[in-house]
Computed example of a mutant assay.
Amino acid sequence: MRKIVWLIALLAIAALVAAFTKPSQAAVEAELKALFLQRLASTNPSDQENGGAFALTMMCKADHDACYEIVRAGLDVSYDDRTLYAAIDVSGFGESIRCYGAFTRFFCNGEIPVQNG
């Protein structure tokens, strides 16, 4: 009986911590930008298939903020505030991902959608 009480207390504390550490919409925007910059950093401009994609990649590497604003305008982001976690759907450019936010972390099922070439 005592173990069950401790288990219930532990689960209640974990739920309380999850509720208070759920990422906000501002944190979602910051994470989207970080994911985009991470993907941009791993992109090699010379691997692009056409001149326009090469020029766009070079521009993005030169001015990260302006490039992110262009990409962000093409994304549809929905934030669903659940009691213990947040569910975030990101779609655009023919792709979509779903992320979950809990305990100040994000867990996504893919990469942030960006315009291809």
Rank of each mutant, 00 (worst) to 15 (best):
M1W: 11
K3H: 08
K3C: 07
I4V: 14
V5D: 10
V5N: 03
L7A: 15
A9R: 07
A9E: 11
A9K: 05
L11M: 14
L11E: 09
I13S: 14
I13C: 13
A15C: 11
L16G: 12
V17L: 10
A18Q: 02
A19L: 07
T21H: 07
K22E: 02
K22D: 02
P23E: 08
A26E: 06
A27E: 15
V28R: 00
A30T: 14
A30F: 06
K33I: 09
K33P: 06
A34G: 12
R39S: 11
R39T: 07
S42T: 06
S42I: 03
P45A: 07
P45I: 02
P45G: 10
P45L: 10
P45K: 04
S46N: 14
S46H: 03
N50V: 04
N50P: 03
G52I: 05
G52D: 12
A53H: 01
A55L: 13
M58Y: 04
M59Q: 15
A62Y: 05
H64W: 02
H64M: 07
D65K: 05
V71P: 00
A73P: 02
L75E: 03
L75K: 03
D76V: 10
S78Q: 13
S78A: 15
D81Y: 02
R82D: 05
Y85A: 04
A86N: 04
D89W: 06
V90K: 00
G92V: 05
F93K: 08
F93R: 06
F93A: 09
G94S: 09
E95D: 15
S96L: 03
S96C: 01
S96Y: 01
R98S: 14
R98L: 09
C99W: 00
Y100P: 00
A102F: 12
T104C: 06
T104R: 15
R105W: 03
I112D: 04
I112R: 01
V114L: 11
N116V: 12
N116L: 11
